[in-house]
Design a protein around this nucleic acid. Sequence first.
DNA 1: ATGAAAGCGCTAACAT
DNA 2: ATGTTAGCGCTTTCAT
Lengths: 336, 336
Amino acid sequence: MSDDVEKPRIRMRDVARRAGVSAITVSRVLSAPDKVAPETRAAVWSAVEALGYVPNLAAGTLKSQRSRIVAAIVPTLRNAIFAETVEGMADALRAEGYQLLLAASGYDPAIEEASVMAFLGRQPDGLILTGIEHSDAVRARLAAARLPVVETWDLGASPIDMLVGFSNYDAGAAITRDLARSGYRRIAFAGTEREARAVQRRAGYRDAVRALGMPATEVAVAAAGLSIADGADVIARLLAEGGGADAVFFANDYLAFGALVECQRRGVPVPGQLAIAGFGDFEIARESLPGLTTVRIPGYAIGREAAGLVMRRLAGAAVDRRIVDLGFEIVRRASA
Amino acid sequence: MSDDVEKPRIRMRDVARRAGVSAITVSRVLSAPDKVAPETRAAVWSAVEALGYVPNLAAGTLKSQRSRIVAAIVPTLRNAIFAETVEGMADALRAEGYQLLLAASGYDPAIEEASVMAFLGRQPDGLILTGIEHSDAVRARLAAARLPVVETWDLGASPIDMLVGFSNYDAGAAITRDLARSGYRRIAFAGTEREARAVQRRAGYRDAVRALGMPATEVAVAAAGLSIADGADVIARLLAEGGGADAVFFANDYLAFGALVECQRRGVPVPGQLAIAGFGDFEIARESLPGLTTVRIPGYAIGREAAGLVMRRLAGAAVDRRIVDLGFEIVRRASA
DNA sequence: ATGAAAGCGCTAACAT
DNA sequence: ATGTTAGCGCTTTCAT
């Protein structure tokens, strides 16, 4: 802990002196090398290497008003759902020299708001949010901040700025109709009420069963409702209630997998006595036995596209499609 | 795209003028409110609110040489393994007003190196890396940068700076001995050679079976070897080879789960004909049928502790334990 | 308890 | 193709 001799940080002018040029030339070599003569460029490069120069981006950001940072807020990283989207963003951003500033909100609007406030001070060039429900304070700040904003994972008529997602309502309705087409007549839904997108899926389910003249049975799941154990719990409650459902549509594949395992534990044949459908098409849906019928969502693509929209807007492109619907796909497997 | 009237950004001096004080007083209210008289503080606060002032942290970082950013690089977010560690970091950092700058390396040392270089320019106050294997260039830069560095998820005698993890070697040896204690006599190992920590687990396995006078059987898994499908593949190859293993220790729970499902598909009784053990104690290990015997790892705690070490060092505390061993725990379930 | 002056390290704007 | 000047918006230092 006794670091006495604090070597002074290497600055751009040190590189410039060594290369026999001025600081601005070093700046150009680093950010617009085409504007510098090849020999000069080489001299600067070798000075940079020799000194181990690392540009201070805080200074650059202050002067240029561009940070090359894009900030993103997702509900959680603790499951595959948003992790893929984050990797999609990170990959796209890295390819263009942008960096990702990340926060997880834990599905808590207050934390989302606090994160937005904290992020804005970093002068991000763009911001990516999950979902279309945000506090008024967030909307007001983002309007004032005049930076590209992309909302994700949902669809809606009036985004803050841009929007990349799919219709959770349509997806919920589509899988419900698909189950009906397969012959199921008493289709239940299970999912959390705490997450806006799961609620949309439920609304799609509800309207679909009504349109089909079938009864609606809904089982609320605790809290975030993302754990496998929550799905097992649903089965216990469904069987105890004796509602006689012949199929259950779960708001995500973890719940559905938990339900599947619980059925196996109890000797309930799937899909013989009870059919099970999930949502997300996570790897577990592909690899479980039987495989899970589910809805495939373009999680990684949502991340890439959201980052792409931000960067295109920053590059000055007039982004024509402010709302991008990446769709979904029903995947039929043996569980339903 | 025709945003003509660019409202000028609100600066600290605008807030100061409205509150009838100088800029430095505003600065103090925001970062050290105790040094300002209560009435002044209130006046500044209401000016901040009224104007919607957001401090420019790039300017603050430039002057103060502190960014309140901690950067972290993990191999991937695409599975529970590191996502928990990242959430542990993010939670701990947010609690202290730090922000997380994140990159995923995809297990590629070149990307890790590029990310370190890119991050350093942001003047992070600390850096958290995964593992203890890093390029010479990375080590050299970090030594020169003089910032707190924490390596994670492993143990070793000579960390760059600080280290939080557990012994993958010991964990591999421990579960192997545990399998032997349960009566298995031909224990195989399956895992990727591409990941340093999996290789350590294998080394522990190898030395343990040797010490027990048992044969070693190793099955290499493709690439990152993190998918459930890779585990199914291992079973196919093991059975084809006919080596007569009675137990398999997999380098992670996804592989083990894939193997379990493949056994069920083929009618191979688990653990009757083949016992299966995993690594990580992910939720899938708890919820599969049968449950997976595995090694529990403190992923979230590693993240919290790593962030905590960085922040304690920044707070000026003489960090005594530069190496923190968070240990592991054998979890016996029905699969072995 | 509050303020004035200075400058962090870079890049935009304007020369040459 | 390269250089000069100025200043981005804060916070440190030193005063009062």
